[in-house]
Design a protein around this nucleic acid. Structure first.
Length: 555
RNA sequence: GCGCCCGUAGCUCAGAGGAUAGAGCGCUGGCCUCCGGAGCCAGGUGCGCAGGUUCGAUUCCUGCCGGGCGCACCA
């Protein structure tokens, strides 16, 4: 039986033992409190341990150790591979499994192959993950890159855990920044044609816009010189936006990130969706007029101040569009909607959730992951970047510099609410100091062994119980943990757990490798080890795939 | 000033209401007759401060200190 199922069964047995004891009048409690059954840190504390007796101490009004003994008296001994139980420490119940349980994992991994690690804890819940959604007025920066790695990995992880996942990119192709974009393009266009016009103060100074207009001119020349500015800007925006989006799509694709949906903000304006949602809020009494603008009472939902939805010039704000957008998400049937935002947008969370509440949706169905900023380091020094001047390192630069694998690994390796110091030198390094290489090396090493071995024996026809070395057991136990790791990462929205897991797995493999020979082990043991190593290969590969990192067979 | 996030080893970071808090880097010293040494093993100091809740707090709560980010009719 798979470790996960074993755990569930034992958890159930513990529950029933407590309930039975209550029936017999030995224990007193209203409802069984939540308790944990987990792998203890210390090997001496068994394979699994539970705090059940300790959390029962208060309701049962009794000493934890005493309760533990009562539970054990009602616990079905010798079932579910439990060999021995003991009361320990302040009242833990430690369970020791039949050591042979680990051998079940190899056939399991072989059979599930590329699906090993998957589970169904998501139960098909429809989840949408919106991430990156960068302004199409510029290039993808490090914040976008982190969001891309995080969002895509989270999507992979949740899909593997049995959620029905949709990846979406929201295109901010409307509003003020598009106006500024148009003025910037226009200025570049005119400047390139030799006209000495000033660049707008709120423009986008990046070199990329000049490039874009250079390309435009090579196609159409100066034919828009005399066109009315309003129309001219529209044409330039249309051209540049398309180009920018293509570029983003390409850059994200080279980063291994693909979307199911690219959603245009402009369509919300065009379709009347924004007007509609404004009306809805109006009718529920959440709006009021002040100074010629229309405001949303976001303070009702814990926001610090009310928020403008329609400016006095009649133009809806980004926030208004965002409300319509998120309503649209729910209308599309998503049970849950997850956004990944930079820390500079965290102030937006409460009011958007509030707006969802005002529209009658449970705000908890909207979850926002806030990412802290990225700092790049080179030569031990922070790399200076200025978005104002348009001089910054882009996702494309990063991929060209350190490669997709290292970049994705490094971004996912940190919890989203931790500031990320990205060491470019380390990411590029081809040594074991670089965790990406360390993990990939383990995979390549295994492939090399398997290649030399020729055939991989079917684990059902060999004696796996020959795998008794401590490094073999440790490796088996860690391989068995993948489904649980993936499930945990999905439920807690913590993809960074995966890089930690895969690093640890690689570490255990290297330890095994140093300690145990595979190819020149005696007959029988050799086959068992080949099967072990193959299961490890599958586990490494599957985990790396979730992170979006390649698993090379040679390096 | 108000709000959110963070404060764990020299550095970069994991972790977690429980039984002895971990990893990498750096430093020191070991390990190649043999499957890829891009590897393995050994060695150290630490939960910002002060209260509170709890049988038990580094983890939860409050205050303070320190850092980041927000607080536009921008997005």
């Amino acid at each position: 039986m798979l470790l996960e199922n074993l755990r569930k069964a034992i958890y159930q047995d513990l529950k029933e033992a407590a309930l039975k004891a209550r029936e017999e009048g030995l224990l007193e409690f209203e409802e069984l409190p939540v308790f944990v059954l987990e792998k203890p840190r210390e090997k001496a504390h068994g394979d699994l341990a539970t705090n059940l007796a300790m959390v029962l101490a208060r309701p049962a009004k009794s000493a934890p150790r005493k309760i533990a003994q009562i539970i054990l008296d009602h616990f079905p001994a010798e079932s579910n591979r439990v060999m021995r139980c003991e009361v320990a420490g302040p009242g833990f119940i430690n369970l020791f499994l039949d050591p042979s349980w680990v051998y079940d994992v190899i056939p399991e991994v072989e059979e599930m192959d590329e699906h090993y690690g998957c589970s169904n804890i998501g139960q098909g819940e429809k989840v949408q993950i919106e991430f990156v959604s960068a302004n199409p007025t510029g290039l993808l920066h490090m914040g976008n890159a982190r969001g891309a790695a995080l969002g895509d990995t989270l999507a992979n992880v949740m899909a593997a855990a049995g959620f029905d996942v949709t990846r979406e990119f929201y295109i901010n192709d409307a509003g003020n920044q598009i106006e500024a974009f148009g003025r910037s393009l226009e200025a570049r266009y005119l400047q390139l044609l030799g006209h000495n016009v000033p660049f707008p103060e709120d423009g986008y100074p990046g070199e990329d816009l000049i490039e874009s207009m250079r390309g435009f001119i090579s196609q159409v020349g100066d034919k828009y010189l005399k066109v009315a500015p309003q129309l001219r800007r529209e044409i330039l925006v249309k051209y540049a936006l398309k180009e920018k989006l293509e570029q983003m799509k390409n850059d994200l694709a080279s980063f291994g990130v693909y979307y199911d949906v690219w959603f245009s903000e402009q369509t919300l304006h065009d379709s009347g969706a924004i007007e509609e949602v404004l009306k809805e809020l109006q009718e529920s009494g959440y709006l009021y007029e002040k100074d010629g603008a229309i405001w949303f009472r976001s303070t009702l939902f814990g926001d610090e101040k009310d928020e403008v939805l329609v400016r006095s010039n009649g133009v809806p704000t980004y926030f208004a569009a965002d409300i319509a957008y998120h309503k649209n998400k729910f209308q599309r049937g998503f049970d849950r909607v997850i956004n990944i935002w930079g820390a500079d947008h965290h102030g937006h969370v409460a009011r958007l959730k509030g707006a969802m509440g005002a529209l009658g949706y449970n705000p908890d169905r909207l979850q926002v992951i806030i990412m802290q900023p990225v700092r790049l380091f080179r030569g031990g020094e922070p790399v200076r970047m200025s978005k104002r001047s348009g001089e910054y390192i882009t996702l494309r630069d990063l991929i060209d510099d350190v490669g997709k694998d290292a970049a994705r690994y490094f971004f996912v390796n940190r919890s989203s609410d931790s500031h990320l110091d990205f060491d470019l030198d380390l990411a590029r390094e081809q040594s074991s100091d670089n965790p990406v290489y360390y993990v990939q090396y383990a995979h390549a090493r295994i492939c090399s062994i398997l290649k030399q071995a020729g055939e991989i024996p079917n684990s059902k026809e060999i004696d796996l119980t020959l795998l008794t070395d401590p490094t073999e057991r440790a490796l088996l136990e860690e391989i068995a943990e993948l489904p649980r790791e993936v499930g945990y990462a999905a439920l807690h929205l913590e993809p960074h757990r995966l890089t930690h897991y895969v690093y640890n797995l690689a570490n255990l493999f290297h330890g095994f490798y140093t300690n145990c020979h595979v190819l020149n082990a005696e007959a029988g043991l050799r086959e068992a080890r080949l099967a072990l190593v193959n299961a490890c290969r599958i586990t490494l590969r599957n985990t790396l795939r979730l992170i979006g990192v390649s698993a090379p067979e040679r390096m």
